[in-house]
Design a protein around this nucleic acid. Structure first.
Length: 866
RNA sequence: GCGGGCGUGGUGAAACUGGUAGACACAAGGGACUUAAAAUCCCUCGGCUAACGCUGUACGGGUUCGAUUCCCGUCGCCCGCACCA
């Protein structure tokens, strides 16, 4: 038996079928045991899984299988983020329906995931493009609309004039549509919004409670929400056009309120638009501002431009103080009120602007050691640095920090009714309207008499029509001949369906809740959802740090407000795993070459590569994230076919810490595959040994005890490492245990050691099972154990095996290790000191000198200072 | 510019709350077995040195009996955000 190699190609499908037939991973909601919910971010059904998925799902599966072995009722579901643009693009290219393309992809990817041997409850599978799913989303949309959490308003969007659709910010590259390449226009469109900004403060504050989230993600969300505190006041506009007598402004720099020399408004400010109506020069200027676009580089290098409106505004604290009012290209309508007060001395943008238009620059404060006025560089110190105030609403020459001065000025303004303290957030409402077919229809109708009203719940779902064509650019839903024409359910008159669909981020904002009762005829079964949620461990890529995770946090709050769940935070633990990278290769002609087309040769420290077919030399390039364009991708199917799923999983978990990028190497996979065979051999040798008569009857209690100590330390350590998601360390400890067992097998073996080896082989099998589940089942079977290792309990740790009665302490002389001493555990410091000073080595090193001091940390270390 | 993180052998990395730096793995080199290859097993493997030793965790300081770990400064890399008033 031991002569046979382990064959994953035979073994893996066999166990997958056995797990399926035994319903090993089907989770019952009424199971009374402690619940544990582990979830990996569900994939977009692009058609094929990639190594990033393999890594992500391997990690989640280890967590799921571990907690199952720990006796918990584990929920580990999988589904498909199935709406979205690529399906429509595929439909255009292949003349198919987005739905059939999507469902085919789902089937293909599901088969791939199944070949990985994941412990997933497939009875809970959901696809967001199915009416079974999105009807509930529509129903919740209506609840939220009625609860005042949804609003419809006009807003500026990125409009692609060729594809005739709104683009998300991340789909605009260098000011051009990512697909059409056409320059993106800013358009004003009426859109549906979730009022996420109503929750800004709560979303910000609650971040402090998410202790099991990476600090990095919490910081990113904090920045995104962008809370700032400052002063809100009104300018009085002199000789103002009707309706524009006051101009609201927000500033975070109340302390500079005696240093402004101009005021400015955004090009899109209502006042700018009003003025443009009677002034063609302003129209031209506003258009010029729009042309700069949204591209980062353009913004960085754009010159500060302004247009003097000729209007004057009056300083709130001193009506006799007039400031010129400009329209300026660097003022954003989206932030604050779209109007600013310009204090050039202490803001670089304001200074650039002032220098260009020859506006005065008034220093408000100066460094403590200088009286030089501001030149071309604004003086912007840390807000906690002390500076000398020379021009402000306080004592002249006062030395204080910006923070202190701001607080004082704010108080003064409030006292005199010149303005009020205000908190501002950068977070804007979440616009969810998309002019797209392949998304969840927004369940409202527009009636000329009754207005914009929700579809009655009894008429849900508002289904997407099947008979659509994509021969025209734009929204196929809108082009459909009949779909949008309806009768108003209230007045019976003619009405029009909303043809916009929802942003796909809505779909992924609650799927984790749907998994808890995926077949219910309500969006959730609150009692069930409340029992499972929050997700104990959520695992996915850091690229979702803001959008998906922030939207989900909001949506959970909105679901709470509408009675669908009774909690605010959806994910208790979050883990963001690193990317999978690979070396890149380039041919002599500069083309990227796939790793499967080359041969690597290594001698000493130098590695060279050549083309497998032609033998031509190939340049080894940098290590990059796997991407099709650089051809440095490895196909999971090929890996599973060649080495088996267990090898792929094992390699993905070993070596690199999970939050860091991991480099896929052929040598590494070979190593993982060798280890698989080693374990199989080891287990078989242990079985053979067990069946033979003992070679020696001599007592071997000491060896057996040493091995059992290693076994139990491994059980303890590996469990802790898995709980802490330190998979690379868990893997290292499994190697250590394997090495210890191999070593013991090679020595003289008496009856007690033989028993210890059998104990080790069995425990190793269980410890290995979350990571290499198929191999573990095969070993379990060979060991003659009852049932499936998937149902086996995690081994108990014998605490007595963790403590050793002796301890080896290093002995340092002046901080350098010179010797070591083995003493009984808990030997008092004085006793250790006596023993150390009598040691020959120490006496020799001391050369008769008397030690100045001896530090003894019991059971740890000795340091002799001379 | 603002915020966050990181820097340890040829490589990926370990090192618990300040206590033997380099666990574990990969690569490499040497050897055993073999007609040969594969597979497997054994040995070496931070640098310098013939050796005793010395030195070494980006660099320079500091605190400490003792620093990869704590503090200050410098350099380098990565990530996120950004005309946010």
């Amino acid at each position: 038996m031991s002569g046979e190699r382990y064959n994953p190609r035979e073994s893996e499908p066999k166990w997958q079928k056995i797990w399926d037939d035994a319903k090993s991973f089907v989770t019952a909601n009424d199971d009374p045991r402690e619940c544990y919910y582990v979830l990996e971010m569900f994939p977009y059904p692009s058609g094929r899984i990639h190594m990033g998925h393999v890594r992500n799902y391997s990690m989640g599966d280890v967590v799921a299988r571990y907690h199952r072995a720990r006796g918990k009722n584990v929920l580990h579901p999988m589904g498909w983020d199935a709406f979205g643009l690529p399906a429509e693009n595929a439909a255009i290219e292949r003349k198919t329906h987005p739905g059939s393309w999507t469902y085919q992809n789902i089937e293909a990817m599901k088969a791939q995931l199944k070949s990985m041997g994941l412990s997933i409850d497939w009875t809970r599978e959901i696809a967001t493009c199915s009416p079974d799913y999105y009807q509930h989303q529509q129903s919740m949309f209506i609840d939220m609309l009625e609860a005042g959490l949804v609003t419809r308003k006009s807003s500026k969007v990125n409009w692609d004039p060729v594809d005739m659709t709104v683009l998300a910010n991340e789909q605009v590259i260098d000011g051009k549509g990512w697909r059409s390449g056409a320059p993106v226009e800013q358009r004003e469109l009426t859109q549906w919004f979730f009022k996420i900004s109503d929750f800004a403060e709560d979303l910000l504050e609650a971040l402090d409670t998410l202790n099991d989230w990476p600090e990095k993600v919490r910081t990113m969300q904090r920045n995104w929400i962008g809370k700032s505190q400052g002063l809100s006041f009104n300018f009085t506009v002199k000789d103002a056009p009707q309706g524009f007598e006051t101009l609201p402004v927000f500033t975070t720099r109340a302390d500079t309120m005696r240093g402004p020399t101009f005021a400015a408004i955004a090009a899109d400010h209502p006042l700018s638009k009003h003025l443009a109506e009677s002034n063609p020069a302003i129209v031209d200027f506003i258009e010029a501002c729009h042309r700069i676009g949204t591209a980062q580089e353009a913004i960085d290098t754009a010159e500060k431009l302004g247009f003097d409106t000729g209007l004057k505004v009056l300083h709130p604290a001193d009506p006799s103080w007039e400031l010129p009012l400009y329209i300026a290209n660097f003022v954003l309508m989206d932030y604050g009120t779209g109007a600013i007060i310009g204090c050039p001395a202490h803001d670089q943008r304001d200074l650039d602007f002032a220098r260009k238009y020859d506006l005065p620059v008034l220093d408000v404060f100066m460094p403590l050691d200088s009286d030089t006025p501001v030149g071309t560089e604004a003086f912007v110190p840390q807000k906690t640095d002390k500076v000398k105030y020379v021009r402000w609403f306080g004592e002249d020459g006062a030395v204080l920090t910006n923070e202190e001065a701001m607080a004082k000025t704010l108080a003064l303004f409030e006292e005199n009714g010149w303005g009020t303290a205000q908190t501002q957030y950068r977070l804007r409402d979440w616009g969810i309207s998309r002019q797209r077919y392949w998304g969840c229809p927004i369940p409202v109708i527009h009636c000329g008499v009754c207005g914009t009203i929700p579809v009655p719940k009894k008429d849900l779902p508002v289904k997407l029509p099947e008979d659509v064509t994509f021969d025209k650019p734009g929204n196929a839903l809108d082009h459909h001949p009949t779909w949008k024409h309806v009768h108003c359910h209230q007045c019976g008159g003619t009405a029009r369906r909303e043809t916009d669909t929802m942003d796909t981020f809505v779909d992924s904002s609650w799927y984790f809740a749907r998994f808890t009762a995926p077949h219910a005829d309500t969006p959730t079964v609150p009692a069930v959802a409340n029992r499972w949620l929050p997700v104990d461990q959520y695992i996915g890529g850091v690229e979702h740090a803001i959008l998906h995770l922030l939207y989900s946090r909001f949506f959970t709050r909105a679901m709470k407000a509408t009675g669908h769940v009774d909690l605010s935070e959806p994910f208790k633990g979050l883990f963001t795993q690193g990317m999978v990278t690979h070396e890149t290769y380039k041919s002599q002609t500069g083309e990227w070459v796939n790793p499967t087309e080359i041969l690597i040769e290594a001698t000493g420290d130098t590695r060279t590569a050549k083309d497998l077919k032609t033998g031509a030399p190939v340049t080894i390039g940098s290590v990059e994230k796997m991407s099709k364009s650089k051809k440095n991708v490895v196909d999971p199917d090929e890996i599973v076919a060649t080495y088996g799923a267990d090898t792929a999983r094992w390699f993905m978990l070993s070596d690199s810490p999970p939050e860091r990028d991991v480099q896929w190497t052929e040598a590494g996979v070979e190593g993982a595959s060798r280890f698989q065979q080693r374990v199989w051999r080891l287990v078989n040798e242990a079985i053979e040994l067990d069946q033979r008569a003992a070679e020696s009857t001599a007592t071997d209690a000491k060896d057996a005890l040493a091995l059992r100590r290693v076994i139990h330390r491994s059980v303890d350590g590996i469990g802790k490492d898995i709980e802490g998601l330190r998979f690379n360390r868990a893997v290292a400890q499994i190697y250590e245990l394997t090495n210890a067992l191999t070593k013991t097998l090679q020595g003289q073996i008496g009856p007690e050691t033989r028993a210890a080896i059998m104990e080790g082989a069995e425990k190793l099998t269980v410890l290995l099972s979350p990571m290499m589940p198929h191999l573990a089942e095969t070993c379990w079977e060979a060991l003659g154990k009852y049932g499936l290792v998937a149902d086996a309990n995690w081994p108990e740790v014998d605490e007595a095996m963790l403590v050793d009665d002796t301890v080896t302490m290093p002995i340092q002389v002046n901080g350098k290790r010179r010797a070591e001493i083995t003493v009984a555990k808990g030997t008092p410091a004085a006793e250790v000191e006596r023993l150390v000073l009598s040691m020959d080595e120490i006496v020799r090193i001391l050369e008769g000198k008397a030690p100045k001091k001896i530090v003894v940390v019991p059971d740890r270390i000795v340091n002799v200072v001379v």
